[in-house]
Design a binder for these strands. Structure first.
Lengths: 339, 339
DNA sequence: CTGAAAGCGCTTACAG
DNA sequence: CTGAAAGCGCTTACAG
């Protein structure tokens, strides 16, 4: 490999000033046809590419956004990422995904790094373990928007669904199809994060609204996560109580729960109805297909990017809160095939 | 927000030269305790953070790697990404995921951009629509490694499993449990990409090796993708022939196939055994759990990063080829619960 | 151990 | 429409 060519090399070869090369490369000022041709030829001959670092340093912007997620192999985050990347592309921004691997220490480091580094023009944080005040402490000057279910006390731009309402919607649905012993699956053993707490609150409120009694025995806890949590919590339940429906805090949890039910020969939905949350692609193809709370991912992505771009142009905007619309996607796991 | 502080601001406030600030910030030369304290105080007071662009421009390296994948919401890519990010982290590199959204035009653009931009010290390309010669044409000077199933003619470092062998292993397994009408699901309608072709070749070879006849009627084609392809192709098959096993080219395809079978009341594995490929997390939790070809993702990630780091330090190394070990993860979808 | 100065590769007011 | 020159914010040989 020969040494990388610079803009000056092009200028020399074409016999023009660096300024003219820059103009041609960026298509700015009307350059005379003759010079443009000469420059383009030199660019071609030498295989010149502008140096991203130098350009960004000079311009003070990069055209890059970061999307910070805890775990990219959780399908909800993967699907969200895809949607955001595609929407951003349409707006002329390139989004890179930055995974923190779900540990709070790494989350802090990545956020500090991203907001302080000038590498990104804007940042999107997807559900975080960090509290709003933590976030305020470590955040640098890069504009950002927070996604997901935490309440951020009006400190930052925030986009999320109405978790309490959606959870209550699930209970209303299960009650409407005649279920009375509805378990809630998703509680960990440690302190509850914002999302779980909101969905739990919605569960309690939903029971109240339809007039069903609350039974703590229907709220198992597990130290596992995702599918394993669903499997584990459902096994606990099977060993100790009767129930005719499972409200799972995520589709992954629901998938784990359905595996546990199948392993005991329990039929879904005849014996137990199951509802998940996120409406990931898998929900449509599980056996049986899974009823799930479906956030409008496209609206979510568009609003988030809109907020971010607003804030990039004016950092002084007062923080906003957007409630993403949701629907309950009803499938066989709650209503059966006889729909 | 006040204006961002520079290294010079710190130098002025601490009453030292920029060189000393740089030394302190980077922990290079033994700076006297007195000066170090002064500098650290100034950094603290002014909330100084080094400018990533300026530093990278000067150093000629960024500490960043890119992982270019077609579709981040395909679980195999998401799981692969997570593994690579975690391995790279241990090596002191930060990996950002760059999704091309599966279109060849965008793939070209992203690769060109990544290899020519100096933003990344190294790049990992995951299975691509591009042919080796395409890749050679557009690639810039940034070192890269190609993952996945294409044959790249020894032009680049390449890490992949032995697709032909693994496919033959699947057939051997299905034959060993008494299956004789084994369909292959994964063929599209257009020109076959490298991966599909290799798995198809392995299917044909596998049949030969166990002495089963090849029947083109057992190789349906579909214009859909992923789960939908599996569903669609299986429906075609159900409408036109008998079969007692499905060899699916990916777990997503297998999940779609199992949905189709379930919708017709066909039992897995009693009536039809199903095998997938990739061993994604979902495979363990599907109903029934899915037998799947399992690449050793950890070895894959470690080898890939090793190759890349080698090449970063010496671009002249001859291209290498690594065969990732695989196993067949046997679950209920082929052998039933009576294991 | 520390300072003054050059330079990484761009872009863009400032002149013409 | 084009050129010569300064500067974005760092790091590091060169002196001391």
């Amino acid at each position: 490999m020969s040494k990388r060519q610079t803009l000056l090399d092009i200028a020399n070869r074409a016999g023009v000033s660096p300024r003219t090369v820059s103009n041609v490369v960026n298509g700015y000022v009307p350059v005379s046809d003759k010079l443009r041709k000469r420059v383009e030829q030199a660019v071609e001959d030498l295989g010149y590419r502008p140096n991203f670092m130098a350009r960004s340093l000079r311009n003070g912007r990069t055209g890059l956004m970061a999307l910070v997620v805890p775990e990219i192999d959780v399908p909800y985050f993967a699907e969200l990422s895809r949607t955001i990347i595609e929407e951003a592309d349409a707006l002329g921004y390139r989004v890179m995904i930055d995974q923190t691997a779900g540990q709070m220490v790494r989350e802090r480091a990545h956020i500090a790094n991203a907001t302080q580094s000038t590498l990104f023009d804007g940042i999107i944080f997807s559900p975080l373990a960090l509290s709003p005040s933590d976030l305020a402490d470590i955040a640098g000057s890069t504009p950002f928007v927070v996604l997901g279910e935490h309440s951020h006390g009006g400190l930052f731009d925030h986009v999320a669904l109405d978790n309490v309402q959606a959870a209550a919607d699930v209970i209303a649905h299960l009650h409407s199809i005649g279920r009375t012993r509805i378990a809630a699956i998703g509680q960990g053993v440690g302190p509850s994060d914002g999302t779980k707490q909101l969905r739990y609150d919605g569960y309690v409120r939903g029971l109240e609204q339809v007039g069903l009694p609350f039974d703590p025995g229907l709220v198992p806890q597990s130290s596992r996560r995702h599918r394993e949590l669903g499997f584990d919590a459902t096994m606990q339940l099977l060993d100790r109580t009767d129930f005719d429906a499972l409200f799972c805090f995520s589709d992954l949890i629901a998938i784990g729960a359905m595996r546990a039910l199948a392993s005991r020969g329990i039929r879904v939905p005849e014996d137990v109805a199951v509802v998940g949350w996120d409406d990931i692609a898998e929900a449509e193809f599980s056996n049986p297909p899974l009823t799930s709370v479906a956030p409008d991912k496209s609206v979510l992505a568009k609003t988030t990017l809109g907020y971010l771009i607003d804030r990039m142009s004016d950092p002084a905007i007062a923080p906003r809160d957007f409630v993403v619309p949701h629907t309950l996607q009803i499938r066989e796991s709650s209503v059966g095939v006889a729909l």
